[in-house]
Computed example of a mutant assay.
Amino acid sequence: MTAAAAGFRMPAEWAPHERTWMAWPRPNLTFPTAEDLAEGRRAWANVARAIRRFEPVTVVCAPGQCEEARELLGEDIDIVERDLDDAWMRDIGPTFLTNGQGELAAVHWTFNGWGENPESAGWEHDSTMGAHVAGLAGARTYASRLVNEGGGIHVDGEGTVLLTDTVQLGPERNPDWTREQVEAEIHAQLGTTKAIWLPRGLTGDYPPNGFGTLGHIDIVAAFAAPGTVVVHTQPDPAHPDHEVCKENVEILKNATDARGRRLEVVEVPAPTVLEADGHWVDYSYINHYLCNGGVVLCAFGDERDEIAAGVFRRLFPERTVVLVDARTIFASGGGIHCITQQQPEV
């Protein structure tokens, strides 16, 4: 029996949380030097402490790494010890589900290192992290054969899911799956009924631009409410994402959700910086994290940080918007949403 057949579905991120799960950076290819690792750990800790203002946080930490984690995280964040490869809990962790009857479940997707990316840090331990965290949370676990990550999906809690062609349909992950098969599996695990596909992600999320996921949706577009979606736009024609974003906006403006509503599309302009370390940046405010009473928003030391914060304050007037510098996280291959995973209240 699938999760949806058993009555479970994935709640929207704005639904109340029991806690947030994260993973602690450890020495690997993502952090090639001691200085990189130290900087990464400070960035992860800043996000964890920002979230802890609003809800409990549990951090999974590799053996031998927990003492330094405690020093940076403080005493009010829970730490559990377990072997892991990298620190992207959105992708290696479970996707949690609820059934409205006080029960918690989780999908454990098949994980292959973001399409067997040779630049990734390996995934022997991360490939089993979803089931492990689900067990720690006391969730019933449903295993999926679909190669997928949490950053590759975004739901409205009312039946609609956002996806990208180059993730779920890319030859690096699911070469033998058709679009219809992917949709059927996604719906069977998440309890959704309508998929809206965007053709690709941002340019900086693909080789040769360093670390990347080959097009995760969570730096491109996200639901902010049923019928409302925020979408990344690149105002500068000098950046290749200018055309990518125009296409995405057009698709979303012409899309309807699972309940037949035409989407309200809220465009959020990218920061003004175009390149970093010789690559096009994929800096995006869309890669935010909603927690109980808060919005933890990526900041880039850019004049558009406050513009983005204003957009999110209007969208979430009952929440406190907290800006956290995400440049170190993006340099490692993701953003704030990528290093967090919500466990919903049941």
Rank of each mutant, 00 (worst) to 15 (best):
G310C: 07
P317D: 09
F312A: 10
N287R: 04
T328M: 13
Y283F: 14
G334A: 09
T320S: 13
F312R: 08
A276D: 14
C291S: 13
I286V: 13
V281G: 07
F300Q: 03
D302K: 03
Y285Q: 10
P271C: 08
N292T: 09
G294T: 01
F316V: 01
D282S: 15
G294D: 04
A309Q: 10
H288P: 01
E318S: 13
R304N: 14
V324T: 00
A276R: 15
L323N: 05
G301L: 01
F312K: 09
A331K: 15
G335F: 07
F330T: 14
Y285S: 07
R313Q: 14
G333T: 05
G333K: 08
I329K: 00
D282I: 10
S332L: 05
E318Y: 08
L274S: 04
G333W: 07
N287Q: 06
F312D: 04
G294W: 04
G301S: 03
V311H: 15
C298F: 06
P317G: 06
G335L: 04
V322N: 00
G278Q: 09
T272E: 14
A331D: 11
T272R: 13
E303S: 14
V322F: 04
G301F: 02
Y283A: 06
R319N: 09
G301T: 01
V281L: 02
A309E: 09
I286L: 05
S332F: 02
R304T: 14
H279D: 14
Y285I: 05
G333C: 02
G278W: 01
I307T: 15
C291P: 01
V281A: 01
W280H: 06
L274T: 00
L290D: 08
T272Y: 04
D305T: 10
V311M: 12
R327D: 07
R314V: 12
D325R: 08
L274H: 00
I336N: 02
F316C: 03
T320A: 12
T328D: 12
